[in-house]
Amino acid sequence: MFTIGDFARLGRVSVRMLRHYDSIGLLRPVAVDARSGYRYYTADQLRRLNRVIALKDLGFTLAQVQTVLDDALDVEELRGMLRLRRAQLEAQVAADTARLASIEARLRAIESEGQMATHDVVLKELPPLRVAELTGVAASYEPADIGPAIQPLYPELFRRLTSADTSPTGPTLAYYEPADDGEKIVVHAALEVAVSPDRAWDLAVVDLPAVPAAATVIHRGPMDEVAGTLQLLARWIEENGWRADGFPRELYVEYCADDPAAGVTELQQPVTRA
Rank of each mutant, 00 (worst) to 15 (best):
R83K: 12
A87W: 02
I103D: 01
P29D: 01
A109K: 03
V52D: 01
M116F: 12
R83L: 14
A54Q: 08
R48M: 04
R106A: 15
L69G: 08
V122I: 14
L62M: 12
E113W: 07
V52W: 00
D33S: 01
A98K: 02
G25N: 03
Q45P: 03
S102M: 04
E125K: 13
A63I: 10
L55G: 02
Q88D: 14
R99S: 08
P127Q: 13
A101H: 02
L78P: 01
D22W: 05
D22S: 04
Y21R: 10
L49Y: 00
Q92E: 14
Q115E: 15
S112K: 06
E90F: 02
D74W: 00
K124C: 09
R79P: 00
E76Q: 14
Y38R: 06
L55T: 00
T42V: 03
Q92W: 00
Y21C: 03
D22I: 07
D33N: 14
L26M: 07
S112E: 06
E111H: 09
L82V: 10
L107Y: 15
D71I: 04
Y40F: 15
L89R: 13
T97F: 06
V32S: 08
S112N: 13
Q45D: 04
G37T: 06
D74M: 00
L129R: 13
Q88Y: 04
V32Q: 08
E113C: 05
V93D: 02
Q64V: 03
A54C: 04
R28F: 02
Q45C: 05
P128D: 03
I103K: 12
L62I: 07
T97W: 06
A31T: 03
R108I: 05
R130N: 03
S23M: 08
D44H: 06
H20Q: 11
F60D: 13
V131P: 14
K56P: 08
G80D: 08
R83T: 12
V30F: 10
L62A: 10
R130I: 07
V121P: 02
L18T: 04
M81A: 09
S102I: 00
L100N: 07
V65I: 09
